[in-house]
Design a protein around this nucleic acid. Sequence first.
RNA 1: GUGGCUGUAGCUCAGUGGUAGAGCCCCGGAUUGUGAUUCCGGUUGUCGCGGGUUCAAGUCCCGUCAGCCACCCCA
Length: 421
Amino acid sequence: MAKGFQTLPGFRDFYPDECAARNYVFEVWRKVARRYGFVEYEGPILEPTDLYRKKSGDEIVNQLFCFQDKGERDVSMRPELTPTLARMAAARQRDFKKPLRWFSIGQHFRYEKHQKGRGREFYQFNCDILGEESVFADAELAALSIDLMREMGFTAEDFKIRVSDRNAWTNFAEESGVPEDRLTAFLQIIDKMERAPEEKTNELLKEFDLDLEKVRAFIGTGADASDTLKDLIADLTSRGLADFVEVDLNIVRGLAYYTGAVFEVFDIGKGMRAVAGGGRYDQLIGLIGGVDMPACGFAMGDMVITDLIRETEAPNQLLDAAIAGAQSVDVFVVIADEERRADANKVVQDLRNAGWDVAQPLSSVKVGKQFQAAEQQGAGFAVVVGAEFPEVSLKNLADRSESKCDADELVASLSSLAPAK
RNA sequence: GUGGCUGUAGCUCAGUGGUAGAGCCCCGGAUUGUGAUUCCGGUUGUCGCGGGUUCAAGUCCCGUCAGCCACCCCA
């Protein structure tokens, strides 16, 4: 048992395998976002606590890593990025052509109890379109989220995008006589309906002169519930992504600030959990930044998606391959004769200058051990530098074939055997 | 914040109240400059921590801390 220090509860060490796994997820996020023409941005990790209070109310403070800095400012480690985005976008909105397609990959903090898929420290992919009110922007984000999943190796068997429309619910509530000031309370009931017992839901709905039957009948209308949903589905269908999408009016997403289409990426395996979620929030930038700008976006955290990758065969294989690739070298230079270390160093440096990833023993090690090390580090080739120098031998570790060449010709020989870096 | 389960070697875990264990990993070796398998040898412990019961506690009891899981919450 290690004495002394360990990580704070809910914080994580990233040993090389875990760091490579994290970076793989980042790479997929970044690659797919770029494929959709999004540009990357970043904000501060520490913000004034009021920024989050303004968006989410005072209760949020319980879930923040917050403290006073030396200037006696109340500050918080960011629990999410949207308020920062709203501030940034509003402050310089005239500098950018609309719509903005922005994404970010960053570390966030929430003071919560650590459990599966949830820690106090996590990374989150945020992807937003600002300054575009058309539902086709929402569709673009839904499509992007689908492609994130596909890029990771998931199929329509593994996940679905469940889409809903906050406005459809607002209209339903209005027509059903739900008072405007009770709307949020009503939507909370709907949000929890799937998990709560029927009797309890019925009980709660009575207050609004409604019952489960009426609510379910509405849910049953599906895409017919609004033009927004029809357009959204039609857009995704025209992209050939219909298999990944289903209308599910059960989704309202707890947050009060959503104003239109909302969606979740939903794991349909045993976990039945949301791995990403988002929607339209046309009022939020005005609220925080003072500039009215329609917006929609979604976020995906690293912890749940990594768990899901690990539990799903094909994505897990892709991840393992990425980890192996991130930690292997192309060439291992075997120093067969310690007297030739200086010559070997020259060989190593020439290879590195040519762009190859190269490792070599840092002390006198038996040749057999060096080959073991080469294999263990995933090298495709070994170069043996010994008494014959400047003649060296180049060995393909996969098929065990070996050839000899002059050290000066090594880079050229290697390039002819393996694809250029 | 609430509840359940679990804490023994770096890891996975055995261990009837009576001498602290196994497997894996790691390191070294098995005559000369080539990867496997195998074999031999080696390091590692405040049994999470603190009390209590007992002649005697890894083992039983209480507390505490940590981890996992679920609830609450979920931006």
